[in-house]
Design a protein around this nucleic acid. Structure first.
Lengths: 198, 198
DNA sequence: CGACGAACTTGCACAACCTGCAAAACTTCA
DNA sequence: TGAAGTTTTGCAGGTTGTGCAAGTTCGTCG
């Protein structure tokens, strides 16, 4: 995947990474209101102006990890064998993603902060919307449907997004001790079955 | 519904309404970037400071109509007979809402602007997230499930939200000439059937 | 190697945003 | 009418986000 990036692009990626890390760390420590763009830039060792070359605002940087995760999911779906049923491709890709989630100790508090802060939640949701749009395109491609007219690929993409979101929510609230993968499999299966009353 | 509000509250509601109208009109005319809070406040006949007493930023005002629509949906669901199956209550409530949508000529362009502007899309999606949370509570109440542990009410609320969003998207892009209500019924039915391949 | 062109960083300036605070205007109720 | 409570408004001040131009670093070709 990471094929021979020149020093230039490596540096750029590193800066982006550093900014995201700094943003997340500071927000977890001081809360969203207690963090300024200047502080994040400082922590990452660049000027505030440079921060704005990477992100329009601090929200985008904080939500950064999620957006990156989204990219991975899309790639994972694309990497599945082309003759596999779409449902299965999606299920496998999500499970892979959930199992490879690092920083669990950091992810949960971050999700909590996001949920509590309207501005963060907004950008987080937008990230999901983006995911669904790309997923939709991928699905349409696979199934040979027309994403512009047929509701099918959109509904499918939305269903996957929904399952992920619900599982993440439940998991974040910590009311369940079930494994997150299992939680997802359950939710996904229910949706595939038309959500029968339990 | 509007039960005997004193002059005070009526004025407040009117101001809010005026601000939303002003915001939407200006945005449709000049685009998001071309509109300042000051201009919106001017158009509505109040001071900029007053604008901020009602909305934290212009995004919230622009997305206002959608949020209000959400409230109506929740009320409509609550108004359905308690012994009706939840699926049916939801379906009826949404259909009622879709049929009572006024300002069609204004709604479509507004949705387009929202879709194109990241900041607006973000707040719009957040509005939907709010909807789903409230819907979830209502559904949990109806079905006697525990929204904190059981994925069921969340999945159901999410499914409804998904159907609405997909239909709105398709409709906004204007690629279809199907009636929006019919579009929704179709999407909803598919989801209830577990989204079979067409 | 060396030097040129492209890309990235930075400071500066500026307009807009948003919030707290206190004074003024208005509504409510007795 | 007058007291109590609510809303509007101006002001002050910190934060945000972007365009521009100058400086710096990287890639490449002679």
């Amino acid at each position: 995947m990471t094929v021979e990036m020149g020093l230039r692009e490596r540096k750029k990626a590193a800066t982006r990474e550093a900014l995201i890390r700094a943003a997340v760390r500071l927000v977890l420590a001081r809360g969203v209101e207690g963090v300024t763009v200047e502080a994040i830039a400082d922590e990452a060792g660049v000027s505030p102006r440079t921060f704005h070359n990477y992100f329009p605002g601090k929200e985008e940087a904080i939500v950064g990890p999620m957006v990156d995760g989204v990219r991975e999911l899309i790639d994972a779906v694309r990497a599945r064998p082309a003759d596999e049923p779409v449902w299965e491709s999606l299920r496998h890709a999500v499970v892979e993603l959930l199992q490879s989630v690092g920083h669990l100790e950091e992810t949960i508090p971050l999700l909590r902060v996001i949920k509590d802060e309207p501005a963060l939640l907004a950008w987080h949701m937008r990230g999901f919307a983006e995911l669904q749009e790309e997923l939709c395109a991928t699905i349409a491609e696979r199934t040979g449907t027309d994403a512009k007219r047929d509701p099918y690929p959109r509904l499918m993409a939305g269903t996957v997004g929904l399952a992920i979101r619900v599982v993440l929510d439940l998991w974040t609230e910590g009311r369940t001790d079930t494994d997150i993968t299992e939680l997802f499999e359950d939710a996904f299966a229910r949706l595939r079955a038309g959500l029968p009353t339990p």
